[in-house]
Write a protein that binds this DNA or RNA. Sequence first.
DNA 1: CGGAATGTTGATATGCCTCAACTAAAGTGG
DNA 2: CCACTTTAGTTGAGGCATATCAACATTCCG
Lengths: 263, 263
Amino acid sequence: MNQAEAGTLKQNNHRVPQEKMAPSDILLRKIQYHSPIDGADVAAIRRLRCEIREFVAGEEFIRQGDKPKAAAIVVEGIMARYHSLRSGARQYLTLHYPGDWPDAQGLFLQHMDHSVCAMGRALVCSIAHEPLMKTFEERPTIGFAVWRETLIDAAIFRESITNNASRHGMARIAHFFCEQFHRAKFAGLADANSCPLPLTQTQLGEMLGMSLVSINRHLQALRQTKAADHRAGRLLIRSWSKLAALGEFDPGYLHQIVPPGRS
Amino acid sequence: MNQAEAGTLKQNNHRVPQEKMAPSDILLRKIQYHSPIDGADVAAIRRLRCEIREFVAGEEFIRQGDKPKAAAIVVEGIMARYHSLRSGARQYLTLHYPGDWPDAQGLFLQHMDHSVCAMGRALVCSIAHEPLMKTFEERPTIGFAVWRETLIDAAIFRESITNNASRHGMARIAHFFCEQFHRAKFAGLADANSCPLPLTQTQLGEMLGMSLVSINRHLQALRQTKAADHRAGRLLIRSWSKLAALGEFDPGYLHQIVPPGRS
DNA sequence: CGGAATGTTGATATGCCTCAACTAAAGTGG
DNA sequence: CCACTTTAGTTGAGGCATATCAACATTCCG
Protein backbone atom coordinates (compact mmCIF):
# COMPACT_ATOMS: atom_id res chain seq x y z
CA MET A 1 0.00 0.00 0.00
CA ASN A 2 1.29 3.41 -0.77
CA GLN A 3 0.44 6.53 1.11
CA ALA A 4 -2.55 7.58 -0.91
CA GLU A 5 -4.22 4.20 -0.65
CA ALA A 6 -3.57 3.80 3.03
CA GLY A 7 -5.64 6.88 3.69
CA THR A 8 -3.08 8.26 6.09
CA LEU A 9 -2.40 11.07 3.71
CA LYS A 10 -1.79 14.55 4.88
CA GLN A 11 -3.68 17.18 3.02
CA ASN A 12 -1.49 20.08 2.19
CA ASN A 13 -3.27 22.28 -0.28
CA HIS A 14 -1.61 25.44 0.88
CA ARG A 15 -1.76 28.29 -1.49
CA VAL A 16 1.69 29.53 -2.07
CA PRO A 17 2.05 33.32 -2.26
CA GLN A 18 1.93 34.31 -5.89
CA GLU A 19 5.02 36.48 -5.53
CA LYS A 20 7.18 33.48 -4.76
CA MET A 21 7.70 32.82 -8.45
CA ALA A 22 6.39 33.61 -11.88
CA PRO A 23 4.84 30.33 -13.02
CA SER A 24 4.34 31.64 -16.51
CA ASP A 25 8.12 31.59 -16.85
CA ILE A 26 8.38 27.84 -16.51
CA LEU A 27 5.74 27.53 -19.18
CA LEU A 28 7.43 30.03 -21.45
CA ARG A 29 10.87 28.59 -20.94
CA LYS A 30 9.76 25.26 -22.31
CA ILE A 31 7.56 26.23 -25.20
CA GLN A 32 9.88 28.93 -26.46
CA TYR A 33 12.42 26.26 -27.33
CA HIS A 34 10.22 24.91 -30.05
CA SER A 35 7.52 27.42 -30.89
CA PRO A 36 7.74 30.89 -32.44
CA ILE A 37 6.30 32.78 -29.48
CA ASP A 38 6.32 36.54 -30.08
CA GLY A 39 6.05 39.47 -27.70
CA ALA A 40 2.27 39.60 -27.82
CA ASP A 41 2.13 35.89 -27.03
CA VAL A 42 4.39 36.38 -24.03
CA ALA A 43 2.18 39.18 -22.82
CA ALA A 44 -0.94 37.06 -23.25
CA ILE A 45 0.61 34.24 -21.24
CA ARG A 46 1.70 36.56 -18.47
CA ARG A 47 -1.81 37.92 -18.30
CA LEU A 48 -3.22 34.51 -17.35
CA ARG A 49 -3.98 34.26 -13.67
CA CYS A 50 -2.85 31.09 -12.07
CA GLU A 51 -3.06 29.53 -8.68
CA ILE A 52 -0.12 27.71 -7.22
CA ARG A 53 -0.61 24.78 -4.91
CA GLU A 54 1.83 22.61 -3.04
CA PHE A 55 1.46 18.85 -2.77
CA VAL A 56 3.05 16.31 -0.46
CA ALA A 57 4.27 12.92 -1.62
CA GLY A 58 1.43 10.75 -2.87
CA GLU A 59 -1.19 13.47 -2.64
CA GLU A 60 -3.78 13.35 -5.39
CA PHE A 61 -4.17 16.33 -7.66
CA ILE A 62 -7.09 15.09 -9.69
CA ARG A 63 -8.96 11.82 -9.75
CA GLN A 64 -10.28 9.48 -12.42
CA GLY A 65 -13.82 10.60 -13.23
CA ASP A 66 -13.33 14.22 -12.21
CA LYS A 67 -14.35 17.04 -14.52
CA PRO A 68 -11.61 19.61 -14.20
CA LYS A 69 -12.25 23.32 -14.75
CA ALA A 70 -8.59 24.26 -14.77
CA ALA A 71 -5.45 22.94 -16.39
CA ALA A 72 -2.30 22.23 -14.45
CA ILE A 73 1.35 22.82 -15.16
CA VAL A 74 4.02 21.21 -13.03
CA VAL A 75 6.23 23.90 -11.56
CA GLU A 76 8.44 21.98 -9.18
CA GLY A 77 8.86 18.29 -8.42
CA ILE A 78 7.42 15.30 -10.20
CA MET A 79 3.81 14.28 -10.80
CA ALA A 80 2.48 10.95 -12.03
CA ARG A 81 -0.55 9.81 -13.96
CA TYR A 82 -2.11 6.46 -13.21
CA HIS A 83 -5.07 4.21 -13.79
CA SER A 84 -6.85 2.69 -10.82
CA LEU A 85 -7.66 -0.93 -11.51
CA ARG A 86 -10.70 -2.77 -10.23
CA SER A 87 -8.48 -4.91 -8.06
CA GLY A 88 -7.44 -1.74 -6.27
CA ALA A 89 -3.97 -1.87 -7.79
CA ARG A 90 -2.51 0.97 -9.77
CA GLN A 91 -0.99 1.19 -13.18
CA TYR A 92 1.29 4.20 -13.40
CA LEU A 93 1.38 5.67 -16.88
CA THR A 94 3.96 8.47 -16.97
CA LEU A 95 5.88 10.85 -14.82
CA HIS A 96 5.68 14.58 -15.38
CA TYR A 97 8.40 17.14 -14.88
CA PRO A 98 8.36 20.93 -14.49
CA GLY A 99 6.83 22.51 -17.56
CA ASP A 100 4.61 19.49 -18.31
CA TRP A 101 0.82 19.60 -18.53
CA PRO A 102 -0.34 16.42 -16.84
CA ASP A 103 -4.06 17.03 -17.29
CA ALA A 104 -4.25 18.89 -20.57
CA GLN A 105 -6.79 16.36 -21.77
CA GLY A 106 -9.27 18.03 -19.44
CA LEU A 107 -9.37 20.97 -21.82
CA PHE A 108 -11.29 18.97 -24.40
CA LEU A 109 -12.52 15.78 -22.81
CA GLN A 110 -15.44 15.64 -20.41
CA HIS A 111 -13.98 13.56 -17.65
CA MET A 112 -10.59 12.34 -16.53
CA ASP A 113 -9.90 8.73 -17.47
CA HIS A 114 -7.00 8.58 -15.04
CA SER A 115 -5.73 10.23 -11.87
CA VAL A 116 -2.76 12.49 -11.24
CA CYS A 117 -0.74 12.56 -8.03
CA ALA A 118 2.50 13.99 -6.73
CA MET A 119 5.59 11.79 -6.47
CA GLY A 120 7.42 13.48 -3.67
CA ARG A 121 6.77 17.13 -2.91
CA ALA A 122 5.52 19.13 -5.87
CA LEU A 123 4.32 22.55 -6.87
CA VAL A 124 1.58 22.87 -9.45
CA CYS A 125 0.09 25.89 -11.10
CA SER A 126 -3.51 25.82 -12.33
CA ILE A 127 -4.98 28.00 -15.02
CA ALA A 128 -8.74 28.11 -15.43
CA HIS A 129 -9.91 26.57 -18.70
CA GLU A 130 -11.99 29.50 -19.78
CA PRO A 131 -9.35 32.23 -20.04
CA LEU A 132 -6.87 29.68 -21.31
CA MET A 133 -9.13 28.63 -24.17
CA LYS A 134 -9.74 32.26 -24.98
CA THR A 135 -6.02 32.80 -25.19
CA PHE A 136 -5.69 29.82 -27.52
CA GLU A 137 -8.35 31.32 -29.76
CA GLU A 138 -6.80 34.74 -29.87
CA ARG A 139 -3.21 33.58 -30.14
CA PRO A 140 -3.17 30.23 -31.94
CA THR A 141 0.60 29.86 -31.59
CA ILE A 142 0.17 29.35 -27.86
CA GLY A 143 -2.43 26.67 -28.34
CA PHE A 144 -0.24 24.96 -30.90
CA ALA A 145 2.64 24.90 -28.44
CA VAL A 146 0.50 23.20 -25.81
CA TRP A 147 -0.97 20.87 -28.40
CA ARG A 148 2.58 19.92 -29.26
CA GLU A 149 3.22 19.10 -25.62
CA THR A 150 0.25 16.75 -25.57
CA LEU A 151 1.53 15.06 -28.73
CA ILE A 152 4.85 14.40 -27.05
CA ASP A 153 2.97 12.89 -24.13
CA ALA A 154 1.33 10.55 -26.61
CA ALA A 155 4.72 9.62 -28.06
CA ILE A 156 5.89 8.77 -24.56
CA PHE A 157 2.83 6.59 -24.03
CA ARG A 158 3.54 4.77 -27.27
CA GLU A 159 7.10 4.11 -26.27
CA SER A 160 5.81 2.80 -23.00
CA ILE A 161 3.57 0.32 -24.79
CA THR A 162 6.57 -0.93 -26.72
CA ASN A 163 8.81 -1.00 -23.69
CA ASN A 164 6.38 -2.92 -21.52
CA ALA A 165 5.31 -5.31 -24.22
CA SER A 166 8.54 -6.12 -25.98
CA ARG A 167 11.43 -5.85 -23.55
CA HIS A 168 12.39 -8.17 -20.73
CA GLY A 169 12.83 -7.06 -17.13
CA MET A 170 16.30 -5.63 -17.10
CA ALA A 171 16.04 -3.88 -20.47
CA ARG A 172 12.65 -2.51 -19.53
CA ILE A 173 13.99 -0.94 -16.37
CA ALA A 174 17.05 0.38 -18.18
CA HIS A 175 14.90 2.00 -20.83
CA PHE A 176 12.68 3.58 -18.22
CA PHE A 177 15.68 4.96 -16.36
CA CYS A 178 17.10 6.41 -19.58
CA GLU A 179 13.86 8.17 -20.34
CA GLN A 180 13.52 9.63 -16.89
CA PHE A 181 17.10 10.84 -16.79
CA HIS A 182 16.71 12.43 -20.20
CA ARG A 183 13.53 14.19 -19.24
CA ALA A 184 14.76 15.26 -15.81
CA LYS A 185 17.85 16.72 -17.43
CA PHE A 186 15.73 18.57 -19.95
CA ALA A 187 13.62 19.99 -17.13
CA GLY A 188 16.72 21.13 -15.28
CA LEU A 189 16.26 18.65 -12.43
CA ALA A 190 19.33 16.52 -13.06
CA ASP A 191 22.98 17.02 -12.44
CA ALA A 192 25.69 15.42 -14.56
CA ASN A 193 24.98 11.84 -13.56
CA SER A 194 21.97 11.70 -11.30
CA CYS A 195 18.40 12.86 -10.99
CA PRO A 196 15.51 12.56 -8.57
CA LEU A 197 13.31 9.53 -9.16
CA PRO A 198 11.09 9.34 -6.08
CA LEU A 199 9.52 5.93 -6.65
CA THR A 200 9.55 2.92 -4.39
CA GLN A 201 10.31 -0.44 -5.93
CA THR A 202 6.64 -1.28 -5.62
CA GLN A 203 5.81 1.79 -7.69
CA LEU A 204 8.47 0.94 -10.25
CA GLY A 205 6.67 -2.37 -10.58
CA GLU A 206 3.32 -0.64 -11.01
CA MET A 207 4.89 1.51 -13.69
CA LEU A 208 6.56 -1.26 -15.67
CA GLY A 209 4.06 -4.05 -15.18
CA MET A 210 6.33 -6.20 -13.04
CA SER A 211 6.19 -7.59 -9.55
CA LEU A 212 8.08 -6.01 -6.69
CA VAL A 213 10.34 -9.03 -6.41
CA SER A 214 11.31 -8.93 -10.07
CA ILE A 215 12.06 -5.25 -9.87
CA ASN A 216 14.22 -5.81 -6.84
CA ARG A 217 16.25 -8.53 -8.48
CA HIS A 218 16.74 -6.75 -11.77
CA LEU A 219 17.73 -3.63 -9.90
CA GLN A 220 20.45 -5.55 -8.16
CA ALA A 221 21.62 -7.03 -11.43
CA LEU A 222 21.67 -3.55 -12.90
CA ARG A 223 23.82 -2.37 -10.03
CA GLN A 224 26.28 -5.12 -10.75
CA THR A 225 26.60 -4.11 -14.38
CA LYS A 226 27.61 -0.70 -13.02
CA ALA A 227 25.29 0.96 -15.49
CA ALA A 228 22.89 2.55 -13.02
CA ASP A 229 21.73 2.53 -9.45
CA HIS A 230 18.45 3.52 -7.87
CA ARG A 231 18.43 4.27 -4.17
CA ALA A 232 16.56 6.48 -1.80
CA GLY A 233 14.45 8.06 -4.50
CA ARG A 234 17.37 9.00 -6.68
CA LEU A 235 18.66 7.58 -9.92
CA LEU A 236 22.43 7.44 -10.34
CA ILE A 237 23.81 6.92 -13.81
CA ARG A 238 27.18 5.23 -13.68
CA SER A 239 27.56 4.49 -17.37
CA TRP A 240 25.17 6.18 -19.73
CA SER A 241 26.36 4.28 -22.77
CA LYS A 242 25.99 0.95 -21.01
CA LEU A 243 22.52 1.85 -19.74
CA ALA A 244 21.34 3.13 -23.10
CA ALA A 245 22.61 -0.02 -24.78
CA LEU A 246 20.88 -2.24 -22.23
CA GLY A 247 17.59 -0.41 -22.70
CA GLU A 248 17.97 0.04 -26.47
CA PHE A 249 17.26 3.67 -25.77
CA ASP A 250 16.87 6.14 -28.60
CA PRO A 251 15.57 9.52 -27.41
CA GLY A 252 14.03 10.48 -30.75
CA TYR A 253 10.50 9.88 -29.50
CA LEU A 254 10.91 12.56 -26.84
CA HIS A 255 11.10 15.16 -29.62
CA GLN A 256 13.28 17.34 -27.48
CA ILE A 257 14.73 20.37 -29.11
CA VAL A 258 17.81 21.19 -27.14
CA PRO A 259 17.59 24.75 -25.88
CA PRO A 260 20.40 27.02 -26.99
CA GLY A 261 23.31 27.14 -24.57
CA ARG A 262 22.66 23.74 -23.02
CA SER A 263 24.29 20.47 -23.88
CA MET B 1 7.05 -12.30 -42.09
CA ASN B 2 4.13 -10.22 -43.20
CA GLN B 3 3.68 -8.74 -46.61
CA ALA B 4 5.42 -5.44 -46.03
CA GLU B 5 8.53 -7.05 -44.60
CA ALA B 6 8.76 -9.70 -47.26
CA GLY B 7 9.17 -6.99 -49.85
CA THR B 8 6.71 -8.67 -52.16
CA LEU B 9 4.33 -5.82 -51.67
CA LYS B 10 2.29 -4.47 -54.46
CA GLN B 11 2.44 -0.73 -54.73
CA ASN B 12 -0.96 0.65 -55.32
CA ASN B 13 -0.84 4.39 -54.87
CA HIS B 14 -3.60 5.07 -57.31
CA ARG B 15 -5.20 8.39 -57.06
CA VAL B 16 -8.88 7.92 -56.73
CA PRO B 17 -11.05 10.35 -58.66
CA GLN B 18 -12.01 13.16 -56.34
CA GLU B 19 -15.65 12.91 -57.31
CA LYS B 20 -15.95 9.46 -55.85
CA MET B 21 -16.66 10.92 -52.45
CA ALA B 22 -16.37 14.04 -50.39
CA PRO B 23 -13.69 13.19 -47.82
CA SER B 24 -14.42 16.31 -45.85
CA ASP B 25 -17.72 14.70 -44.94
CA ILE B 26 -16.13 11.86 -43.03
CA LEU B 27 -14.12 14.42 -41.13
CA LEU B 28 -17.12 16.59 -40.45
CA ARG B 29 -19.35 13.73 -39.47
CA LYS B 30 -17.05 12.78 -36.65
CA ILE B 31 -16.06 16.14 -35.23
CA GLN B 32 -19.54 17.57 -35.39
CA TYR B 33 -20.64 15.10 -32.75
CA HIS B 34 -18.54 16.77 -30.15
CA SER B 35 -17.50 20.21 -31.36
CA PRO B 36 -19.58 23.32 -32.05
CA ILE B 37 -18.74 23.58 -35.74
CA ASP B 38 -20.62 26.45 -37.41
CA GLY B 39 -21.38 27.18 -41.04
CA ALA B 40 -18.18 29.10 -41.63
CA ASP B 41 -16.20 26.23 -40.18
CA VAL B 42 -17.89 23.78 -42.51
CA ALA B 43 -17.11 26.03 -45.44
CA ALA B 44 -13.47 26.30 -44.38
CA ILE B 45 -13.17 22.54 -44.15
CA ARG B 46 -14.75 22.01 -47.53
CA ARG B 47 -12.33 24.50 -49.00
CA LEU B 48 -9.35 22.29 -48.04
CA ARG B 49 -7.97 20.37 -51.00
CA CYS B 50 -7.21 16.81 -50.31
CA GLU B 51 -5.74 13.92 -52.16
CA ILE B 52 -7.18 10.47 -51.82
CA ARG B 53 -5.01 7.40 -52.07
CA GLU B 54 -5.81 3.74 -51.94
CA PHE B 55 -3.67 1.23 -50.09
CA VAL B 56 -3.47 -2.55 -50.25
CA ALA B 57 -3.14 -4.73 -47.17
CA GLY B 58 0.16 -4.14 -45.39
CA GLU B 59 1.20 -1.21 -47.54
CA GLU B 60 3.04 1.51 -45.66
CA PHE B 61 1.61 4.98 -45.61
CA ILE B 62 4.39 6.71 -43.73
CA ARG B 63 7.54 5.42 -42.12
CA GLN B 64 9.34 5.98 -38.83
CA GLY B 65 11.76 8.88 -39.39
CA ASP B 66 9.80 10.49 -42.20
CA LYS B 67 8.96 14.19 -42.12
CA PRO B 68 5.43 14.44 -43.42
CA LYS B 69 4.15 17.53 -45.19
CA ALA B 70 0.53 16.45 -45.12
CA ALA B 71 -1.83 15.02 -42.56
CA ALA B 72 -3.92 11.95 -43.20
CA ILE B 73 -7.47 11.02 -42.38
CA VAL B 74 -8.68 7.47 -42.75
CA VAL B 75 -11.62 7.40 -45.12
CA GLU B 76 -12.24 3.70 -45.57
CA GLY B 77 -10.75 0.58 -44.02
CA ILE B 78 -8.39 0.27 -41.12
CA MET B 79 -4.88 1.64 -40.62
CA ALA B 80 -2.35 0.74 -37.95
CA ARG B 81 0.50 2.50 -36.22
CA TYR B 82 3.57 0.55 -35.17
CA HIS B 83 7.11 0.77 -33.91
CA SER B 84 9.85 -1.09 -35.71
CA LEU B 85 12.14 -2.74 -33.20
CA ARG B 86 15.85 -3.26 -33.67
CA SER B 87 15.27 -6.98 -33.84
CA GLY B 88 13.18 -6.37 -36.92
CA ALA B 89 10.00 -7.23 -35.08
CA ARG B 90 7.05 -4.88 -34.88
CA GLN B 91 5.08 -3.52 -32.01
CA TYR B 92 1.66 -2.46 -33.20
CA LEU B 93 0.32 0.47 -31.20
CA THR B 94 -3.24 1.17 -32.31
CA LEU B 95 -5.70 0.66 -35.10
CA HIS B 96 -7.39 3.57 -36.79
CA TYR B 97 -10.86 3.71 -38.23
CA PRO B 98 -12.54 6.06 -40.71
CA GLY B 99 -12.44 9.60 -39.39
CA ASP B 100 -9.22 9.05 -37.41
CA TRP B 101 -6.03 11.04 -37.90
CA PRO B 102 -3.26 8.48 -37.65
CA ASP B 103 -0.39 10.89 -38.23
CA ALA B 104 -1.64 14.11 -36.69
CA GLN B 105 1.56 14.30 -34.68
CA GLY B 106 3.32 15.26 -37.90
CA LEU B 107 1.62 18.63 -37.70
CA PHE B 108 3.82 19.68 -34.80
CA LEU B 109 6.64 17.21 -34.44
CA GLN B 110 9.63 17.14 -36.75
CA HIS B 111 9.79 13.46 -37.55
CA MET B 112 7.60 10.41 -37.22
CA ASP B 113 8.56 8.19 -34.28
CA HIS B 114 6.50 5.33 -35.70
CA SER B 115 5.13 4.04 -38.99
CA VAL B 116 1.60 3.79 -40.31
CA CYS B 117 0.34 1.05 -42.60
CA ALA B 118 -2.94 -0.28 -43.95
CA MET B 119 -4.54 -3.35 -42.42
CA GLY B 120 -6.48 -4.67 -45.33
CA ARG B 121 -7.50 -2.36 -48.13
CA ALA B 122 -7.84 1.27 -47.08
CA LEU B 123 -8.56 4.70 -48.43
CA VAL B 124 -6.76 7.69 -46.97
CA CYS B 125 -7.16 11.37 -47.62
CA SER B 126 -4.20 13.71 -47.16
CA ILE B 127 -4.40 17.40 -46.47
CA ALA B 128 -1.25 19.49 -46.80
CA HIS B 129 -0.03 20.87 -43.49
CA GLU B 130 0.23 24.45 -44.63
CA PRO B 131 -3.39 25.19 -45.55
CA LEU B 132 -4.54 23.02 -42.67
CA MET B 133 -2.56 25.02 -40.13
CA LYS B 134 -3.86 28.20 -41.66
CA THR B 135 -7.39 26.93 -41.21
CA PHE B 136 -6.64 26.10 -37.57
CA GLU B 137 -5.41 29.64 -37.05
CA GLU B 138 -8.37 31.27 -38.68
CA ARG B 139 -10.98 28.96 -37.22
CA PRO B 140 -9.72 27.72 -33.85
CA THR B 141 -12.75 25.51 -33.31
CA ILE B 142 -11.56 23.23 -36.10
CA GLY B 143 -8.12 22.94 -34.59
CA PHE B 144 -9.63 22.22 -31.20
CA ALA B 145 -11.71 19.41 -32.68
CA VAL B 146 -8.63 17.78 -34.18
CA TRP B 147 -6.67 18.38 -30.99
CA ARG B 148 -9.44 16.56 -29.18
CA GLU B 149 -9.02 13.61 -31.53
CA THR B 150 -5.33 13.41 -30.71
CA LEU B 151 -6.15 13.48 -27.00
CA ILE B 152 -8.44 10.51 -27.43
CA ASP B 153 -5.63 8.72 -29.23
CA ALA B 154 -3.51 9.34 -26.17
CA ALA B 155 -6.24 7.94 -23.92
CA ILE B 156 -6.29 4.81 -26.07
CA PHE B 157 -2.52 4.49 -25.74
CA ARG B 158 -2.80 4.78 -21.97
CA GLU B 159 -5.42 2.09 -21.83
CA SER B 160 -3.14 -0.06 -23.93
CA ILE B 161 -0.33 0.37 -21.43
CA THR B 162 -2.64 -0.79 -18.68
CA ASN B 163 -4.07 -3.62 -20.71
CA ASN B 164 -0.69 -5.00 -21.76
CA ALA B 165 0.92 -4.54 -18.39
CA SER B 166 -1.76 -5.62 -15.99
CA ARG B 167 -3.99 -8.20 -17.62
CA HIS B 168 -3.25 -11.80 -18.41
CA GLY B 169 -3.57 -13.34 -21.86
CA MET B 170 -7.25 -14.03 -22.15
CA ALA B 171 -8.42 -10.82 -20.48
CA ARG B 172 -5.97 -8.84 -22.58
CA ILE B 173 -7.38 -10.22 -25.80
CA ALA B 174 -10.95 -9.75 -24.59
CA HIS B 175 -10.28 -6.12 -23.74
CA PHE B 176 -8.69 -5.51 -27.11
CA PHE B 177 -11.65 -7.07 -28.89
CA CYS B 178 -14.07 -4.92 -26.90
CA GLU B 179 -12.23 -1.77 -27.83
CA GLN B 180 -12.08 -2.61 -31.50
CA PHE B 181 -15.74 -3.53 -31.68
CA HIS B 182 -16.70 -0.34 -29.90
CA ARG B 183 -14.62 1.79 -32.20
CA ALA B 184 -15.63 -0.02 -35.36
CA LYS B 185 -19.26 0.43 -34.39
CA PHE B 186 -18.68 4.12 -33.76
CA ALA B 187 -17.08 4.45 -37.17
CA GLY B 188 -20.01 2.68 -38.80
CA LEU B 189 -18.00 -0.39 -39.77
CA ALA B 190 -19.74 -2.90 -37.55
CA ASP B 191 -23.05 -4.65 -37.74
CA ALA B 192 -24.96 -5.79 -34.67
CA ASN B 193 -22.50 -8.42 -33.55
CA SER B 194 -19.48 -8.41 -35.79
CA CYS B 195 -16.89 -6.11 -37.29
CA PRO B 196 -13.85 -6.32 -39.53
CA LEU B 197 -10.60 -6.99 -37.71
CA PRO B 198 -8.11 -7.82 -40.43
CA LEU B 199 -5.22 -9.05 -38.29
CA THR B 200 -3.47 -12.38 -38.39
CA GLN B 201 -2.77 -14.12 -35.10
CA THR B 202 0.85 -13.11 -35.47
CA GLN B 203 -0.21 -9.47 -35.69
CA LEU B 204 -2.53 -9.84 -32.70
CA GLY B 205 0.54 -11.02 -30.84
CA GLU B 206 2.56 -8.03 -32.03
CA MET B 207 -0.25 -5.80 -30.85
CA LEU B 208 -0.70 -7.31 -27.40
CA GLY B 209 2.87 -8.26 -26.61
CA MET B 210 2.27 -12.01 -26.75
CA SER B 211 3.61 -14.86 -28.81
CA LEU B 212 1.69 -16.34 -31.69
CA VAL B 213 1.23 -19.60 -29.81
CA SER B 214 -0.25 -17.89 -26.77
CA ILE B 215 -2.63 -15.91 -28.91
CA ASN B 216 -3.74 -19.03 -30.67
CA ARG B 217 -4.46 -20.89 -27.45
CA HIS B 218 -6.25 -18.05 -25.74
CA LEU B 219 -8.29 -17.49 -28.85
CA GLN B 220 -9.44 -21.06 -28.72
CA ALA B 221 -10.27 -20.74 -25.05
CA LEU B 222 -12.21 -17.58 -25.84
CA ARG B 223 -14.18 -19.46 -28.47
CA GLN B 224 -15.10 -22.05 -25.91
CA THR B 225 -16.44 -19.44 -23.51
CA LYS B 226 -18.74 -18.43 -26.40
CA ALA B 227 -17.91 -14.79 -25.74
CA ALA B 228 -16.21 -14.00 -29.03
CA ASP B 229 -14.62 -15.50 -32.08
CA HIS B 230 -12.00 -14.19 -34.47
CA ARG B 231 -11.76 -15.79 -37.89
CA ALA B 232 -10.81 -14.76 -41.36
CA GLY B 233 -10.16 -11.16 -40.40
CA ARG B 234 -13.50 -10.69 -38.73
CA LEU B 235 -14.44 -10.40 -35.09
CA LEU B 236 -17.69 -12.02 -34.05
CA ILE B 237 -19.19 -11.05 -30.73
CA ARG B 238 -21.29 -13.86 -29.33
CA SER B 239 -21.87 -12.43 -25.88
CA TRP B 240 -20.96 -8.82 -25.33
CA SER B 241 -21.58 -8.93 -21.60
CA LYS B 242 -19.39 -11.97 -21.18
CA LEU B 243 -16.62 -10.47 -23.28
CA ALA B 244 -16.75 -7.12 -21.50
CA ALA B 245 -16.63 -8.88 -18.14
CA LEU B 246 -13.66 -11.00 -19.21
CA GLY B 247 -11.77 -7.95 -20.41
CA GLU B 248 -12.92 -5.67 -17.59
CA PHE B 249 -13.91 -3.30 -20.32
CA ASP B 250 -15.20 0.16 -19.53
CA PRO B 251 -15.49 2.38 -22.63
CA GLY B 252 -15.13 5.66 -20.73
CA TYR B 253 -11.61 6.21 -21.96
CA LEU B 254 -12.80 6.31 -25.57
CA HIS B 255 -14.64 9.54 -24.78
CA GLN B 256 -17.22 8.76 -27.40
CA ILE B 257 -20.15 11.05 -27.59
CA VAL B 258 -22.92 9.03 -29.12
CA PRO B 259 -24.19 10.80 -32.21
CA PRO B 260 -27.88 11.65 -32.18
CA GLY B 261 -30.09 8.97 -33.68
CA ARG B 262 -27.68 6.10 -33.11
CA SER B 263 -27.68 3.64 -30.28
C1' DC C 1 11.94 3.65 21.16
C1' DG C 2 8.28 1.35 18.49
C1' DG C 3 5.71 0.79 14.36
C1' DA C 4 5.25 1.24 9.53
C1' DA C 5 7.03 1.35 5.13
C1' DT C 6 10.59 -0.31 2.22
C1' DG C 7 13.97 -3.38 0.61
C1' DT C 8 16.04 -8.21 0.42
C1' DT C 9 16.24 -13.17 0.04
C1' DG C 10 14.70 -18.05 -0.71
C1' DA C 11 11.46 -21.45 -2.44
C1' DT C 12 7.85 -22.83 -5.35
C1' DA C 13 4.41 -22.41 -8.94
C1' DT C 14 2.90 -21.11 -13.39
C1' DG C 15 2.06 -18.56 -17.51
C1' DC C 16 4.24 -17.69 -21.41
C1' DC C 17 7.98 -18.32 -24.83
C1' DT C 18 10.53 -21.07 -27.95
C1' DC C 19 11.22 -24.82 -30.86
C1' DA C 20 9.35 -27.92 -33.99
C1' DA C 21 6.22 -30.44 -36.68
C1' DC C 22 2.11 -30.56 -39.07
C1' DT C 23 -2.54 -29.13 -41.21
C1' DA C 24 -5.36 -26.09 -43.76
C1' DA C 25 -6.19 -22.48 -46.80
C1' DA C 26 -4.95 -19.28 -50.26
C1' DG C 27 -2.42 -17.70 -54.06
C1' DT C 28 0.77 -18.69 -58.26
C1' DG C 29 2.42 -20.39 -62.46
C1' DG C 30 2.87 -23.93 -65.91
C1' DC D 1 -6.87 -27.27 -64.06
C1' DC D 2 -3.61 -29.18 -61.00
C1' DA D 3 0.93 -29.13 -58.71
C1' DC D 4 3.51 -26.13 -56.14
C1' DT D 5 4.56 -22.54 -52.93
C1' DT D 6 3.43 -19.50 -49.44
C1' DT D 7 0.87 -17.96 -45.62
C1' DA D 8 -2.00 -18.82 -41.72
C1' DG D 9 -3.50 -21.61 -38.15
C1' DT D 10 -2.96 -25.66 -34.83
C1' DT D 11 -0.80 -28.88 -31.59
C1' DG D 12 2.79 -30.92 -28.44
C1' DA D 13 6.85 -30.65 -25.49
C1' DG D 14 10.29 -28.47 -22.69
C1' DG D 15 12.44 -24.57 -20.54
C1' DC D 16 12.69 -20.05 -18.63
C1' DA D 17 11.20 -15.63 -16.82
C1' DT D 18 8.30 -13.80 -13.84
C1' DA D 19 4.61 -14.13 -10.27
C1' DT D 20 3.46 -15.51 -5.78
C1' DC D 21 4.15 -16.71 -1.03
C1' DA D 22 6.66 -16.07 3.04
C1' DA D 23 10.12 -14.68 6.12
C1' DC D 24 13.40 -11.40 7.41
C1' DA D 25 16.40 -7.04 7.34
C1' DT D 26 16.60 -2.27 7.06
C1' DT D 27 15.36 2.36 7.02
C1' DC D 28 12.36 5.99 8.13
C1' DC D 29 9.62 8.68 11.13
C1' DG D 30 6.69 10.06 14.84
